Amino acid sequence: MKWNKVLLVFVLIFLSATPIGFANQAPQTAKYIKAKVPSSVLNIAKENTYPNPAQDVPYLQPSEFTKKLIGTSKVKIENPNLIRMLNESSVNNPPLAFGLRATIYLGEWPLNYESTETSPNWQYQKINTNYYDNRGGNMNYQIHYVQEAQKIIKGGLTAKVANAEDVKKMMMLKAMDATGLPLAFETIIGGGTKKDQVYNIGPQRLGYLYAYAPAINEKGKVTYGEVYLVLKGKKKQIMVKNVVSQGIGAWIPVQDHVSFGFLTSERPR
């Protein structure tokens, strides 16, 4: 009992919360250059009557202390929340650390996500139809996109997993890096949103302008493990036990983008 009390005192002295880490945004120059976006998909960020908040996930930079710690782990650690927790801790090295032995359980965490497929669905969800009957006309009639009602487009994971929010964050980071597109698990197209792109409906025909919300289908593998901080004298290391992996997928909508499909017909569709 006496040794346990002494050990607890040492641990409380050596562990102190100091905000060392900080979050940096991904370089803006890397955005909007990777995805092969079809010409039928238009950016409506300026026209959207609902101002979606920016969803850029911070690329959290590990502190020097955290870099050294995660470098001792045999399992790759990428979880931003776990990195943030390690950033907010430090372990001092006073002379009395000689002979100290301690193993501190930090919890079970999703440690990393490995992407195996990132693919777009440009017609993930139909959100609007603009229609005009020009069967009685003698010349082309021009229509353009007008969102008739506000639409909320939601994505999500394809299966239930532990620490779902951490997993979603890691998956979105990988998908954003792979596509260069602005992604969010929920985005809104405001009613009355318009786009000036013109579509011609010929005489004696009906015209249909369909609008779809695009999304990215992300698939891969998430790895979990029990994380321990091990102190041996002046040495510190991360030890991960009971490592398991699980396949996971997600649909992540593309924020402030709309995919259009236009067709004309002699008969109602």
Results as ranks from 00 to 15, higher is better:
178 A>D: 13
211 A>T: 12
153 I>G: 06
200 N>T: 10
204 Q>A: 12
135 R>G: 09
179 T>K: 08
171 M>R: 04
143 I>V: 14
191 G>W: 02
135 R>V: 06
172 M>T: 14
207 G>H: 01
173 L>D: 10
179 T>D: 06
144 H>F: 10
196 D>K: 14
206 L>H: 04
133 D>L: 07
209 L>A: 07
208 Y>R: 05
203 P>R: 05
190 G>P: 01
164 A>C: 01
218 E>L: 00
196 D>A: 15
143 I>T: 12
210 Y>T: 03
226 E>N: 15
133 D>V: 10
152 I>V: 15
180 G>P: 10
141 Y>H: 12
173 L>Y: 02
134 N>W: 04
195 K>D: 15
146 V>L: 10
164 A>I: 01
144 H>P: 08
135 R>S: 11
211 A>Q: 03
196 D>R: 14
235 K>D: 15
216 I>R: 01
201 I>W: 08
160 K>P: 00
206 L>P: 00
193 T>H: 05
177 D>A: 14
221 K>P: 00
170 M>D: 07
134 N>V: 05
222 V>H: 06
140 N>I: 11
153 I>A: 07
206 L>D: 00
220 G>Y: 01
179 T>G: 08
209 L>Y: 04
181 L>M: 14
183 L>M: 07
213 A>D: 03
183 L>A: 09
216 I>P: 00
175 A>Q: 03
156 G>S: 04
138 N>K: 10
169 K>L: 12
139 M>R: 15
188 I>L: 03
226 E>S: 15
169 K>W: 00
168 K>M: 13
148 E>V: 06
189 I>K: 04
222 V>E: 06
205 R>C: 01
148 E>M: 09
203 P>C: 00
196 D>T: 15
186 E>L: 06
190 G>H: 03
189 I>R: 03
139 M>C: 02
139 M>H: 14
226 E>G: 02
218 E>P: 00
146 V>R: 11
151 K>Q: 14
212 Y>S: 04
137 G>Q: 06
165 E>P: 01
169 K>I: 10
184 A>F: 11
209 L>D: 05
223 T>C: 07
152 I>F: 10
147 Q>C: 13
162 A>I: 05
185 F>M: 09
222 V>R: 06
198 V>D: 10
156 G>Y: 03
181 L>S: 11
157 L>K: 09
226 E>F: 02
226 E>I: 03
